[in-house]
Amino acid sequence: MTTAPVLPIVTGVDGSVESLDAVRWAARAAHLHGAPLEIVYALDFSALLAGGVVPPPEEMKDVLRIRGRRYLRAAAELAAAQGVPEVVTRLDPDRAAQALIDASRKASLLVVGSSGHGKLTGLLAGSVASAVGAHASCDTVVVRGDTWDEPGAAERPVVAGVDGGEASTRILTAAFAEARVRHAPLVVVHAAADEPQAREPDRAALADAGHRLLTERLRGHDTEGVAVEEVVVQSHPRRELIERSATAQLVVLGTRGRGGFPGLLLGSTGQALLHNAACPVYLVRGA
């Protein structure tokens, strides 16, 4: 009896500090899950087309290849230091987002970096993160913040946002898997939007309904070895998850909420977390 090969965790590198953070996070995740790691550098030859049609001279392509190989060597050495079992590097002629989306078709997880606000590089990194989060064929992690790399960060919980939609089962499956391999507690959050004028009995009824929803969604999941805390709050989901990200090592949510529609590939909560979370964000792809 043969076993199916373990799909790799894929990450991209572009020489920035943010992409090297993504490599370190991806390498540690590969070590925890016993998965190989694939590191991609996108050459983006299309950006060199003169007038949009004339191909660049081969010398310019060679410069990009040399730079890419240098970045990949440095990233592979960084990954190996994290204990990853196997590292493969690859140059891709396409643009960064498309190269990573293509690679996600044969990956178990896609990991990208995201820089802060107010910088052109941050805007570019944000566009790649949003694109792969919306279009990747596998789950995506966007590595944000610095807290995940601090001493004691491994003791922080994994936080999962559950709204009761059809994606809740997949979100909880991913959240339990991450909490289990990290030996971390799991906080499952159901947040309903604020209703300032709601009467106290109505708030109590909403809270009861939220607890019943979480109990139902958690039923069938193997909780052995994972300390689970259920949290029901009257708050906007994006605000609640952003606040909890400050004391979490990972936030897990779906790419589209219960109120989403087919054209909304990455919901408002996901977009808010990509730009404001204080820790890495794990986006569980839609069905």
Score class of each variant (00 low, 15 high):
82 Q>D: 03
83 G>F: 12
83 G>S: 11
84 V>T: 15
85 P>K: 03
86 E>F: 04
87 V>G: 11
88 V>W: 04
89 T>M: 00
90 R>C: 09
92 D>N: 15
93 P>I: 12
94 D>Y: 03
94 D>M: 03
95 R>C: 03
95 R>Y: 02
97 A>C: 02
97 A>K: 00
97 A>L: 02
99 A>R: 03
100 L>H: 10
100 L>Y: 10
100 L>A: 12
102 D>P: 01
102 D>M: 07
103 A>V: 04
103 A>I: 06
104 S>C: 10
105 R>G: 15
107 A>G: 06
109 L>W: 01
110 L>I: 06
110 L>F: 08
110 L>R: 07
111 V>C: 06
111 V>H: 03
112 V>L: 09
112 V>S: 06
112 V>R: 07
116 G>C: 01
117 H>G: 03
118 G>V: 03
120 L>E: 14
121 T>A: 15
121 T>F: 00
121 T>C: 00
123 L>D: 04
123 L>P: 00
123 L>E: 11
123 L>V: 09
124 L>A: 10
125 A>Q: 07
125 A>R: 04
125 A>V: 05
126 G>L: 08
126 G>M: 06
126 G>Y: 04
127 S>P: 00
128 V>H: 07
128 V>I: 15
129 A>Q: 05
130 S>V: 15
130 S>G: 14
131 A>M: 13
131 A>S: 15
132 V>W: 08
132 V>Y: 06
132 V>Q: 06
134 A>V: 13
134 A>T: 14
134 A>M: 04
135 H>F: 12
135 H>K: 12
138 C>A: 12
138 C>M: 05
139 D>N: 14
140 T>R: 10
141 V>F: 03
141 V>R: 01
142 V>M: 06
142 V>C: 04
142 V>H: 04
144 R>A: 07
145 G>M: 09
145 G>L: 10
146 D>M: 08
147 T>P: 00
148 W>I: 02
148 W>L: 01
148 W>V: 07
148 W>H: 11
148 W>F: 14
148 W>Q: 02
148 W>E: 00
149 D>T: 13
149 D>E: 15
149 D>H: 13
151 P>G: 11
151 P>M: 07
153 A>C: 09
154 A>E: 15
155 E>W: 08
155 E>Y: 04
155 E>N: 13
156 R>P: 11
156 R>N: 07
157 P>A: 11
